[in-house]
């Protein structure tokens, strides 16, 4: 043995640390204050979606219409080998627009649901004070029950993506019984 035992142990610790460090995760990005939101255009009006509720934003891929599907279900699209059902936000929120959906939002975790929006206008951050929930009866739609309050601008409605996805999944599995 050329090295004393303690030095071997030290060297081993060093190597082990180096090895472990090479696998360690990068430090978490510094949290900016507030919550990130995407600003979209749906039915000709602006609308915000919390970024944390989405798993992706894509240009709309080619859609294949499904015969017999409700009008709010635009069809299915392929995204990296996954089959995604694309639901029209305009129709789901009871709005009207002649604008074709150009953007696809992915939500719903493992059971992915695609939501179509006409426009993507950018990203923004809102502090908890700026995010106000409970528009109550005055909300344009029950799924637009909270707002972002911005200086010098009308309140921007925030879409409750989780409730919407839950509703879509429930509606789809509902009338199965009578088959």
């Amino acid at each position: 043995m050329s090295l004393p035992r303690s030095r071997t142990a030290l060297r081993l610790d060093e190597l082990r640390e180096g090895f472990d460090a090479s696998f360690s995760r990068p430090p978490p990005p510094r949290q900016e204050p507030g919550e990130a939101l995407l600003r979209l255009r749906v039915g000709g009006a602006p609308l915000a979606v919390k970024l944390g509720h989405l798993s992706g934003l894509h240009l709309m891929p080619r859609l294949v219409r499904l015969p017999g599907a409700p009008a709010s279900l635009l069809g299915v699209a392929g995204l990296r080998g996954q089959l995604i059902a694309v639901h029209d936000l305009t129709a789901l929120l009871g709005l009207q627009s002649g604008e074709p959906p150009r953007w696809l939002l992915l939500a719903g975790g493992s059971r992915r649901v695609g939501l179509a929006a006409a426009g993507f206008e950018g990203q923004m951050r809102a502090t908890p004070e700026q995010l106000r929930s409970g528009g109550g009866a005055s909300a344009a739609h029950p799924l637009l029950n909270s707002n972002v309050l911005l200086p010098d601008a009308p309140p921007l409605p925030v879409l409750d993506v989780d409730s919407l996805v839950r509703k879509l999944l429930e509606d789809a599995s509902g009338p199965q019984q009578g088959r």
């Binding site: 891929p61 080619r62 294949v64 499904l66 015969p67 017999g68 599907a69 409700p70 279900l73 299915v76 699209a77 392929g78 995204l79 990296r80 080998g81 089959l83 995604i84 059902a85 639901h87 719903g108 059971r111 992915r112 649901v113 996805v165 879509l168 999944l169 509606d171 789809a172 599995s173 509902g174 009338p175 199965q176 088959r179």
Partner: peptide, 24 residues
């Protein structure tokens, strides 16, 4: 078909073509 699609009598499932576009 994805979970959010209600049962459709005419479609049993889907595959993909060479461009990754769904084929019913």
């Amino acid at each position: 078909l994805p979970s959010s699609v209600p049962p459709l009598p005419l479609v049993a499932g889907a595959s993909f073509d060479e461009q990754g576009v769904p084929l019913l």
